[in-house]
């Protein structure tokens, strides 16, 4: 991935600002709605670029610890899903739930951080 500026995050930010500052005020109806949706999607990408790497690393550590095996994120998530379905995680339920809750919280922090500020 090129590291020259503008870097990836700066390009995405520029497109998001263009959509929200220049397109959104000049469209209406369905197009305005879809513009807001597009702005939100780019904001998710920006948050993922900034925080996703650290979250992935932490998730991988938790998965290795939980499953007592090595692998990458995709492999270990597939294995965890299989083990849950097979009932093989029932003896580690508390650790499993703690992991799943942390993972979901991280994903929401990227997708819609406001969701975490209010409990419902």
């Amino acid at each position: 991935m090129p590291t020259d500026r503008p870097n990836t995050a700066e390009l995405v930010e520029a497109v998001r600002e263009f959509l929200s500052d220049h397109v959104a005020p000049n469209v209406e109806g369905q197009l305005a709605f879809h513009t807001r949706v597009a702005v939100n999607a780019l904001a998710i990408v920006e948050r993922t670029l900034a925080q996703g790497g650290a979250m992935d690393a932490a998730e991988l550590v938790r998965l290795k610890d939980l499953l007592k095996q090595n692998g990458d994120l995709e492999e270990l998530n597939a294995e965890l899903s299989r083990a849950i379905r097979a009932g093989e995680m029932d003896d580690r339920k508390d650790a499993l739930l703690a992991h799943l809750r942390q993972t979901a919280e991280d994903k929401i922090a990227l997708a819609n951080p406001r969701y975490l500020t209010k409990r419902g």
Binding site: A38, L97, A104, L110, A111, Y115, G120
Partner: peptide, 23 residues
Amino acid sequence: SVEKVSIGRRAVEGEYDMLQLVD
């Protein structure tokens, strides 16, 4: 559809709420 693909990221809202409700 940008709307449909974006709503995919809301799946975690259901997942998160579910995980608060279960033991």
